[in-house]
Design a protein around this nucleic acid. Sequence first.
DNA 1: ATGTATTGTTCATGTTTTGTCTATTAACGC
DNA 2: GCGTTAATAGACAAAACATGAACAATACAT
Lengths: 316, 316
Amino acid sequence: MSKPTLRHSIRVVALRTGLSPHVIRVWEKRYGTVHPDRTGGNQRVYSESDVQRLTLLRQATEAGHPIRNVTHLPEDQLRALLNSTPRASAEPTRLRIPELAPARSAPDLIAAAHEAVFRLDGARLEQVLEEGAVSLGQGALLAQVVAPLVQRIGDDWQEGRLKVAHEHLASAVIRTFLANASRPMALHAAAPVILATTPAGQIHEIGAALAAAVAGNQGWRVVYLGASLPAEEIAAAAGHRDARVVALSIVHPADDPALPGELRRLRRLLPPGCRLVAGGRAVSGYREALGEAHATVCETLGEFSAALDLLRQSAN
Amino acid sequence: MSKPTLRHSIRVVALRTGLSPHVIRVWEKRYGTVHPDRTGGNQRVYSESDVQRLTLLRQATEAGHPIRNVTHLPEDQLRALLNSTPRASAEPTRLRIPELAPARSAPDLIAAAHEAVFRLDGARLEQVLEEGAVSLGQGALLAQVVAPLVQRIGDDWQEGRLKVAHEHLASAVIRTFLANASRPMALHAAAPVILATTPAGQIHEIGAALAAAVAGNQGWRVVYLGASLPAEEIAAAAGHRDARVVALSIVHPADDPALPGELRRLRRLLPPGCRLVAGGRAVSGYREALGEAHATVCETLGEFSAALDLLRQSAN
DNA sequence: ATGTATTGTTCATGTTTTGTCTATTAACGC
DNA sequence: GCGTTAATAGACAAAACATGAACAATACAT
């Protein structure tokens, strides 16, 4: 079973895993965590999978699991554990990785993200977003980076500067990032429900995902339904989950002749107590129908956020 | 190398059940609620079923039942009790730990997940998936739960048992779950690149997301491009990122007359060293064209996984 | 109202776990 | 040859855990 495999010294392993050489050795001695080969001179030589395993173990211990309980778990169970465990115990973590976060400004972040999209580098895009969440904070990141970035990518796509592949990759990464960002807060048992989607014909779902993230951050219970839902479906879902608000993102076809009808129909079918909020770049094209549907129109994410706060208080 | 069973320290149990370590100990002492193993140094070690039982008991006590009356009830009676009593707890749950699910085997998990989709409860669906990842492991979860679940939802949707809203919600949650599952922790600088997408006309992206998750778990560098990309775009992206493999998911339109042409064109445009792998429920409908395109056809996720391992070794 | 049982929490003390540190010897790279 | 890095064993300190007893709050009964 050998081996064009890469081999690493303990120093490199320490750097890549975030553990100290001491810990790596003592884990091996006490628990037999990994069994690196040795050089002729008895020096440890680690494989790539050792590095991976140690990285997972570091994350598991940081998540609160005692090392003795996780050292012998297979990798996929470790991964699952990491995805499932509540990140709750983030406070009493003993040692932290050295601070490397260069607090970047919003325009810098947008530029870096755009560059990553252009290179089809999804991992890098994600990294930039996470970095931004740290330096700007979640709310500011959404309003000052993600929203403009999405708009810029949309423009580039419509004018042929970016291909469909770029747009799809960016959508997938941003969508996942937003889904993760909208989740983690503790939810009040009585948290109001908001439904985020896009009316039939509106094919761009990122706006709805953004709305979902903002609402989730403000403590709403979010039901995210993706893009292009007919009025009947939206209304039925709103009734089913007893939603207080339906948020619609309207971005791309700015002149869909069928949309005004959809909006009026939606208003008619929605439960009476359910408010309608619409945002997105193309809302101005449907102002009249939105007015008839008694929809609150938001031009920016900030407005949307404020509108949510108002709606929440009004019904408490 | 016997059994890598999950074992938890009392702190982790406290986090996952929402009880304090004190209460867990005092319940054991006073009522013999659970009988955890002990380490060599007399420290408690809990199993997954202990966690489940304690969670149920927490819920029972919160519902007003004195602990002495319920400690010795078997789990199914506890569940019945919880289902029969109305959720009396008006207070904003002291700890935000969600209810733990009863389901453990793959069929149970599928049923629970399906139920969550039907109720439009995305948070619950996500919870079921994460729980399954812990108890089954990532790989088994994908093959035994996620894949069948997706297929079942697809069937239900095509036959009108589920609405578009259900399908969209499920897609969004599963997609995010898969994206999180596919993130490799530490990857080789020289990790091979795989591109996951769907050829033009194939609108269901979940199959591609599944493939991406499997590949990510096996250490590939994944470029995920969503659904319905024309051959030129796929080829350009593969060249741009120097992909070794392009994975195509073919699920829904099983008789698209344009697809064979797309596949042949893709083969022509792809860089010579780049392999083509196709999977999904509808591959059998395009066998001929796939053969002409020199694509490896996988009927199941297991086959796909094996094919990836082969392709990886062959080029090292 | 008063007493009692139940139940969760707190305190005090000793033990275990776990990351870190020291000292010494050996190996590696220039 | 020499400075740097690694291996080993042992010591050490902070955090987490175990245990028993006491305490406060609530419910229930007299």
